[in-house]
Nucleic acid binder design. Structure first.
Lengths: 142, 142
DNA sequence: TTTAATTAAGATATAAGACTCTCAAATAAC
DNA sequence: GTTATTTGAGAGTCTTATATCTTAATTAAA
């Protein structure tokens, strides 16, 4: 995984919410159970995502969370970076002190290309697109 | 970076030793200074690498470390995995619970390909090859 | 209006990684 | 043999990520 558990949980939660019927309110505990995420920890992450405007939260009986339009349009990378800070170290795989574009180590350029492709992979599709395609797959295999 | 600081330091130290004149003994403190690695921490890592047979160590005045033939023939991946345990999580970038080869999420296959290429990048060349090519670059730009 | 349910907030606990310190063991120089 | 130097080994500290717990705030239902 390129990001931390926190980022992974955030993505799993947001993709879970993206697959729910429109405007349905889902409890934190239900997401935690379905996605097998530590409940209290997920609650914290959802709290943060609520602040950032990726989910709307509703207190009290019948309350819960639902995904916002902002989150649907956002990429996985955007959400993860918001929740846990910059993703993927920019340094070369060798980590060599002097390694740079001017003074490239033998793995420098290949790594730069792969790094770009990873970025592209997690930033070029919206959460909604990913969620929809995934729903189709789940339906087909059901 | 795909691995932790510990792995990064190990690689930088071993590549540094690989660039030294044959059979020269280099002190831990010298490597630490050149590569800007916390000295005591590096000492620990070198200790472990000595156990694994990647460096030979010599105590006392005039002592130090030198790279072994085993390390020269090894890949970066092998050394890092020995020093810090398995590298790169095998799970998909989405981290989705149900995501698998049978039930792939929309990013699954692209990620699998990139993952393989990363593995290949850090496992297909020997430490010696990388070090030699890097020495040439440094010389050319000197 | 009381109770139950649900999120918000903040404090606390646990674990792992990163880093430091101290002393022992070995070896070379004096 | 004594001293200075260098690695070996182990304990200890610091920081960050992960996870848990407790109480407050809010809301719906009884």
């Amino acid at each position: 995984m390129i990001y931390t558990k926190t980022g992974e949980y955030a993505i799993r939660a947001i993709l879970f919410l993206a697959r729910q019927p429109k405007d349905a309110l889902i409890m934190s505990s239900e997401i935690a159970k379905s996605e097998e995420i530590p409940a209290h920890y997920l609650a914290k992450i959802l709290q943060r995502m609520a602040k950032y405007g990726y989910v709307d939260s509703f207190k009290g009986r019948g309350g819960g969370f639902k995904i916002t339009e902002l989150a649907k349009k956002s990429s996985i990378l955007e959400i993860v970076e918001r929740v846990e800070g910059p993703v993927i170290n920019l340094k070369c795989v060798t980590g060599l002190k002097e390694c740079s574009d001017e003074n490239p180590c033998p793995l420098h350029e290949e790594w730069a290309e792969l790094r770009n492709r990873i970025y592209n992979l997690i930033s070029s599709k919206s959460v909604q697109e990913v969620a929809e395609k995934y729903s189709e797959t789940l339906k087909r295999n059901a």
